[in-house]
C-alpha cells in the first residue's frame, strides 16, 4: 500500500512541476509495462502450475533432516524450482525449524528461493537474454550453497 502511496505522491508532485514531462513519464511507464506483459503472463501461468505440483506439505516432506552435501543440494534444487513469496517463505522456514530441520538446509532452501528464479526466468530473459539470465541464476545457486555450508559450520551442524 505504501508503495502505491509513494507512486501517487511523486506523480502528483511531478504533474504540478512540469506537465509535459509527467505525460512523457506516464507514456514511458506504459510502454515499459506493455513490453514485459507477455513474459509476465507466462510467469504467472508457471507459478500456478508449479505451486499446484509442489504444495507446502510436499516441500516439507522433501526437505531432509541431515546436513550432508546431497541434502544441501537437494534443498537448493527445491528452492530453485518452487516460488513462494517472502511473506509465506519465512513462516514456512519457521515451521521447518520447529520440525527440527537444520539451519544449513533452511539456508540452502531460502537462499535459492530468493536468488534463483526458474519461474521468473521468462521475465529475466526478456531483459538480459537467455545466456546472462542463466549465468546469473547459476551464480545465485552457487552462492546459496556457500551460504548454507558456512551457516552450517557456524551453527556446528557441519563438522569438518
Amino acid at each position: 500500500m505504501w508503495f502505491a502511496f509513494i507512486a501517487a505522491v511523486l506523480l502528483i508532485l511531478s504533474f504540478c512541476l512540469d506537465r509535459p514531462k509527467t505525460k512523457k513519464a506516464v507514456i514511458l511507464a506504459y510502454k515499459r509495462f506493455i513490453f514485459i506483459l507477455p513474459s509476465f503472463l507466462i510467469m504467472l501461468i508457471l507459478i500456478s502450475v508449479i505451486l499446484f505440483l509442489f504444495p507446502q506439505e510436499k516441500i516439507i516432506a522433501y526437505l531432509n533432516y541431515g546436513s550432508n552435501i546431497v541434502n544441501i543440494i537437494l534443498a537448493a534444487l527445491i528452492g530453485s524450482i518452487t516460488a513462494v513469496p517472502g511473506f509465506i517463505a519465512f513462516p514456512l522456514a519457521g515451521i521447518l525449524k520447529e520440525q527440527g530441520i537444520s539451519y544449513t538446509i533452511i539456508a540452502s532452501f531460502t537462499t535459492t528461493l530468493m536468488m534463483v528464479g526458474t519461474i521468473t526466468f521468462p521475465v529475466e530473459t526478456t531483459y538480459l537474454g537467455k545466456k546472462v539470465a542463466l549465468i546469473r541464476n547459476v551464480i545465485g545457486f552457487v552462492i546459496a550453497i556457500v551460504v548454507a555450508l558456512l551457516i552450517g559450520l557456524y551453527f556446528g551442524e557441519i563438522v569438518l
Binding site: A7, L10, L11, A25, R32
Partner: peptide, 13 residues
C-alpha cells in the same frame, strides 16, 4: 503499475 510509474518518473527527471 506503481513501480513502472516510478521508473517512468525516474527516467524523465
Amino acid at each position: 503499475p506503481c513501480a513502472f510509474i516510478i521508473i517512468g518518473l525516474f527516467e524523465v527527471w
